[in-house]
Write a protein that binds this DNA or RNA. Structure first.
Lengths: 329, 329
DNA sequence: GCTTGCGTTGGGAGCGTTCTCAGGGGTGCG
DNA sequence: CGCACCCCTGAGAACGCTCCCAACGCAAGC
């Protein structure tokens, strides 16, 4: 196999130039262990002169440490990476990792290959894994021994502490708001069945509707705008008298909005529409979208901090979601 | 330093269980080198039984190869990762990398720390780097010796082959379209000055306007919806008679659209609005956004393939951008 | 002056792989 | 029957780093 990497300064080189041993150079550069002032100076100068940078792979191999944090997004296709929710997680993780000189990687975790999660968690070069939108089946792939290297934003497991948003409560709030504003024939566009993050909102919807003795109108979506359009068409077709729609993601809500506009249905007069997540474009639609804003950034910050520190304790305070009232509902 | 990684099956273990030497086990598992059928079977069985997976760090150290491809996005803050353009690059890269068992990492490349790019390119655990939206200054950090490990989606350098979109041509097409539909007082909302990807569209705009002896109306934006709103307000303020706006990104165009709607300005009757990039929501706005679609996916696919193969040749065919005519212009 | 102790240093073993090299055992050919 | 050849194998040296351990020199204490 080719070795395409050109010769670069190694610790050995730095030591030679500084006139000390490799051990001393290592001690100086890692900051661990004693070293005389003169040795310290000479090594630092040599490193500077040679443009030395430690090899992350070698360091990971020697220490068992880890140089990067991986945000692993579960899903059926790489397209799941294209999600505002994920972006917010990555952003928060990047901010936590930057001062510690830990890189952030974003990777797709195919639903059909749960063992890849174990690989990721076992990889010496990864410091920790932040799983997003995972399933019980995938979490089962993480053995208890790997405990502490993996944290989930979503559901958890005995081996994987969970930092979750109260999406059930947020959904409750939204459906209740629709009810309180006089809506009685409320439909809900859900996400794919396999996603735990759609199950709780669905349950919340069913609960609120059930308590008010109102009919359940569930339509499956896929979290995309196109899926939202299709779902809205289905709703108009099956239940033409629907007076409110709660979509489990803003993208689907915006898709629904586009369909209603094209059909000449008034929003919110004829049909109220509410989304979920508060993506940036939600404020710009016509009419502007009523939705729920989850503290994803803060949760992700807590999760990233926990996994970097190998802490097992979820955050003490749960950050509540917030109802964002705009024009559409 | 703690060694938090629990004991896991190593090649040595597999060899012992299979009753062969480490070398033979390695040969069988990598597929390189000869091995008898029985050895092959025994090693495979042992690996299966122990749940063996090679340690990426150790493999990277030994081969100098690399296990992941890094998509590095240059910018002033981690927020640049939150960009539909970047998402499309990551997606395409993930698709190219998946069959080769190469992971994809997304990392922010701070504008003020160009040396991090060299670190990235030197890291043995990275197979290659895909730079997005870079500057000449950052590219200068890549020494010629690292040639072939780095590829740019955007401008290039002697050491970094470039796979670029013809955004100048696309901008020309858009401005010409506005002109052809009778607009004469056309303003443009640009991106930040430091971004090369805004310079060519600006030049194209100036060229088309200059050729028609029309006045130049440039307003700076920041590629976000909020920036687009601010820019639109500035345009209405400074040049109330403007009859067309070309925004250098869809997000800014959608922001502009929101401002015009709030002001009661008719689009496209009073003011035509055109965007750039064709993000998913562009089709859903009211009115739907006229924009240009760049073959980002195909370019990124070519770039990822090139960097994985260490090829130095840019793709033979340039993929043209496409004018997406919708309602706003 | 000899021992004790501390601060500093270098040697060397490991981390888990890959890959080169030399040797061993079988088969085919002369 | 002997030799050459080839297939297979294992020993061992890298890769670049960290870290344990033993040794060194030097000052202080008895």
């Amino acid at each position: 196999m080719a070795r395409p990497l050109p010769q670069r300064a190694t610790l050995e080189d730095v030591a030679r130039v500084a006139g000390v041993s490799r051990s001393t150079a290592s001690r100086v550069l890692t900051g661990f262990g004693a070293a005389s002032l003169s040795a310290r100076d000479r090594v630092a100068a040599a490193a500077e002169q040679l443009g030395y940078a430690p090899d992350p792979a070698a360091r990971a191999l020697a220490t068992g440490g880890g140089v990067r944090l991986v945000v692993a997004v579960a899903g059926t296709e790489p397209g799941v990476l294209h999600d505002p929710y994920v972006d917010r997680v990555v952003r928060a993780a990047a901010e936590v990792c930057a001062p510690r000189e830990v890189g952030v990687s974003l990777e797709w975790l195919p639903l059909h290959a749960p063992e890849r999660l174990r690989r990721l968690a076992e990889d010496r070069s990864v410091r920790g894994v932040l799983i997003v939108n995972t399933t019980e089946r995938i979490l089962a792939a993480v053995p208890a021994a790997l405990d502490g290297r993996t944290v989930s934003i979503g559901i958890g497991s005995p081996a994987v502490p969970s930092f979750d948003v109260d999406n059930g409560g947020a959904a409750s709030t939204i459906v209740s708001h629709l009810y309180d504003s006089g809506r009685r024939r409320i439909a809900m566009v859900t996400g794919p069945d396999w996603m735990p993050c759609t199950r709780r909102p669905v349950r919340a919807y069913q609960q609120v509707m059930g308590a008010a003795a109102l009919p359940i109108r569930l339509v499956p979506g896929d979290f995309t705008a196109a899926g939202g359009q299709a779902a809205m068409l289905a709703i108009l077709d099956r239940w033409p008298d629907t007076d409110a729609v709660f979509a489990n993601s803003d993208a689907m809500a915006l898709g629904a909005l586009a369909v209603l506009r094209r059909r000449g249905v008034g929003v919110p007069d004829d049909v109220a529409v509410a989304g979920f997540d508060d993506v940036p474009f939600a404020a710009l639609s016509a009419p502007a979208l009523t939705t729920a804003s989850h503290p994803v950034g803060r949760i992700a910050t807590a999760a990233a901090t926990a996994v970097l520190d190998r802490a097992r304790t979820p955050p003490a305070t749960a950050y509540p979601s917030e109802l964002i009232l705009r024009e559409s509902a």
